[in-house]
Each structure stands twice: as C-alpha cells, then as structure tokens.
Design a protein around this nucleic acid. Structure first.
Lengths: 243, 243
DNA sequence: CGACTTATTGATGTCCGTCAATACGGGTGG
DNA sequence: CCACCCGTATTGACGGACATCAATAAGTCG
C-alpha cells in the first residue's frame, strides 16, 4: 500500500495544494494551456527567473501585487508579523506551486526564502489583461484563491482544536501529501524548528519535545533534524484526524 | 471622536466584511447593478425568502453549493466539525452579508442559525450562467472569496499568536466593526459563550473568566450576557493590536 | 578550527483546560 | 401570576499542557 493510496483514503488530509489548480476535466482538449501555470508560461515565455538565498525577502507587507511567482526550487514561507514583533507563518510554499496571487492591490503578508530558492515571476497585470477577453483565466484564478481559502480554513481548525501532538501529525501528513515521501517513508523538512513552531502556534521547545515524544512512541524516526521517517502512518493519521 | 473614526484608524481592525463586496470606484456609472448582492437581486427578483429558528441548519458538510445566501436578519455561524466531535466556528455571518459562496461543488462547512434568522437564497448556477457573458460577475465573486481569504488569514494570526485576553479584544473589535455600536459604545452579542469559545479556540469557562477580567479592568462593561459596553476602546485596541 | 546559529534537553512557572457546584434566565404549564 | 425546569452562564478548585528560562549539544559557515 503506497503512501499516495493511504493519503487518498482520508479526503481531509489528502494533498491540498496551496495555489495549484484543481484537476482539469479529462475531456478538455489539451491543445490550449489549461492550468494557470501553463497559461502564464504560454503568455509570458520570457518571464524572469531569479535565484534567492536563505532568508531573502520576495515581497513584503504593503508591496504592490503586480507579480505572481512560481517556485522552481527550494521552499518559501508566507508570514504575517504583528506590531509587537510576533510572527505567524500562514503557510509554506513547495516546489511547483504558485504564490503571491491575491485580489488586492497590496500584499498583507511577507514571502521569504526558507533556504536557497529559485523562482519565476510573471506580470499580474499582463495576466489580467489576457483575461479581459478570456474568462477562463479568471476562472482559474478564482479556483486558485478558493483552494487557498479551504487550506486556511483547515488550518484554522487545526490551530483552534488540536494539541501539540495532533498539530505536528497534521503538519507532517500535509507536507508529505504535497512534496511526497522518498523510500522508507522519508520526509524532507526544509524549514527549521522555529518555522514549524510559528506555523502551528507553538514554541520551538515544544516542537522539539513533541518530535521526541513521537519518536519514542515509534510513530516517526528522526535520522537528522531536516529529515523524518514516517514509521507508523496509521498512528499519525489517527492523531491528525481526531482533530 | 466616533467609533467609526477610531476603527478606521487601525486598518487591520477596521471592518473586514465577510463576504461583502469591496468599495466600488466612484467613477463607475451606477445605472447597472454593481455589487454581488445587487447583481443577484436584479437577476433573481423572485428569490426565496426563508425564516429559520434557533439552531436550524442552512447547509451542511457535503451539501451541494447550488445556493448562495444573504442574511436578512439574525446571525449565522459557519462551523467545521471533526470526526472526534470537536467543533470550530470559522466565522459568524452578520446582517447583510453573503454566505455559502464557494468555488467547489460541495460545502466543507455547516451553516446554522444562531438565533432566529431570515435569509434569502439565490441560485448559484443562475449566477454562473449570467457570468458566462459577463466577466464582471466573476470579478465580484473573486473579490468576495478574496476577502474571505484575508479574513481567514487574519484569524490564523489571532489563533496562533494571541492569548485569551487578546483574542477576546480582537473578537469584540471586529464584531463592532461589522455590526456597529449603539449609543454608549454598546455592542450586541447574538451568540452564546460556547460559540465564542469555539470560534477563538478557548473553553466556555475561559471566555467567562476573561470577560470578567476585562470588566474588572474597566475595559468593558457587561450589562447582561448578550450585551457589552466597550468602555475603554484604547485599551481594547492595545490588546488586539499587540498580537 | 572557531564563532555562530539552530536544535535539544531540563527545571520551573503559568495560563488555560477540566471538573464540579451554583446562579441566572427564559419559557412552560399549572 | 407564580413555580418549576432546563439550558446557559458564572465561579471556584485543581491539574496539566505548554511556555519560559537556562544550559548544553550539534550543525554550519567562514
């Protein structure tokens, strides 16, 4: 039984792409670009490719939303900061996903490279212009924003109802659903412990201790701090589902 | 200094309508309906008006999303339930707002009447059909969904970073921004304590105790359990802003 | 190799959850 | 109109999960 099968079993915990496009009806003729990314690529073949190093900011609070990005390599975090200096990580962006797509003139979040990162930027205004005579694009944008909304609502449930162990299990499973597992159910953790903590409303110490507890309970294994082995998927799912 | 002025000062805590339309550019000729609600009213004049009593369900998890609703009177809560029986209230809907608008074929939440409620239902498919030749409608839908996304992200910050007192202050201020205050900075609380608890990731006891603490600190006054007086707006704002 | 960041672990405190008892309030029926 | 009843709200006592503070270990990059 593969991981993909297992994850598919529990619809709520299956991969919920951040800003990726919902599956296209198979009937659709594929002569035309269909997903948002394909549309962007087709319309803006000379889009800017950019390399960023660990911690660099891609856009910030108040910046204009005239660019849409696709993550080519690495991982990006989407943060909100408070006047008092607290930070919350709304979500991580993994390879292949779009981000920075929003229907307001200014960003209300910050996007930063977690490690080294490659991105491609597309012009939002060009995307909108192309949509003037083309409602398909707008439909795709709507679909992408809608997916983000569902993701955010699922995360609300996690933050509001789950304890530390359950939060960590949910986080690992969602990440696995997005970036996949390698042999032996290995899961890469590109982000640091502090990032995980700020995403789940915990402290870095609690994240460490919870990982340790799951390890002792034989639910996961921790070969090194940036890699996990999801040893007992059944137990993980039980933790995550009992939200 | 009126409340409206005060609230407007702090952009993050100004009214963030749940599914209401962003302000329209003043230049737009008003001969045509402009907001989603106006569009719905114009296109579907004979829409069904419906009266519901306390606790009744409007739609539930898995129901088809073929209806869009506007709340005419009362308050509605939007919940997610977990297999283990926990409940999270994603948001409340207040008078005038749209709800049930989502870009997927099935609902992933439940909508229930908090007290007695009047709603108007519109056909989603008719809305979509009207949008086939009319990108304006799709733009409005996108705008509405986008606003919901921002609201959800703000709520993520609150759940992830704030303690009980701060959560309550944020909640009161947002509610005030949406339904308004009557004389003496009075705020109506249509929902029960348990609802507030399930919205903020607290228990009913903590909600009670926190209200009591804010009262003792002269920040609010509590004439009765379904009404508040926001005595010290400055203190409330300080609590909410220092997320 | 050495300085610095990140991760881990322990000791202690505290906020909030849990359990339990009481008060309130509003609706019903006598 | 009052008494009763049931759901909601409130308050207290207590415990536990997680935060905080602090020290050490393990990476990481120059």
């Amino acid at each position: 039984m593969t991981l993909a099968v297992n994850l598919a079993r529990s619809e709520r915990y299956a991969a919920v792409p951040h800003l990726r496009i919902a599956p296209v009806p198979p009937a659709a003729p594929r002569t035309q670009p269909v997903t948002l990314i394909e549309i962007l690529r087709a319309a803006q073949p000379g889009a800017v490719r950019q390399r960023l190093t660990r911690g660099q900011r891609i856009f910030g609070d108040g910046d204009s939303t005239d660019q849409v990005y696709q993550l080519v390599s690495g991982t990006v975090r989407l943060c909100r900061h408070t006047p008092g200096g607290r930070r919350h990580i709304l979500d991580f962006v993994v390879v292949g996903e779009l981000f920075g797509l929003i229907e307001h003139s200014e960003h209300t979040m910050t996007a930063e490279a977690v490690g080294d990162v490659t991105i491609v930027s597309y012009s939002r205004s060009r995307l909108d212009r192309s949509s003037a005579g083309d409602c398909v694009v707008r439909r795709r944008v709507l679909s992408a924003v809608s997916d983000s909304l569902l993701t955010a609502q699922q995360q609300l449930l996690i933050l509001g109802c789950q304890d530390a162990k359950e939060k960590m299990a949910s986080f690992f499973l969602r990440l696995a659903g997005r970036i996949g597992l390698t042999s032996g159910n290995r899961l890469a953790l590109p982000m640091g412990r502090q990032d995980i903590a700020d995403h789940l409303g915990l402290t870095i110490e609690t994240v460490c201790r919870t990982i340790r507890a799951l390890q002792r309970a034989q639910v996961i294994d921790v070969p090194n701090s940036h890699e996990l082995a999801l040893t007992d998927m059944r137990a993980l799912r039980a933790l995550a589902i009992e939200e």
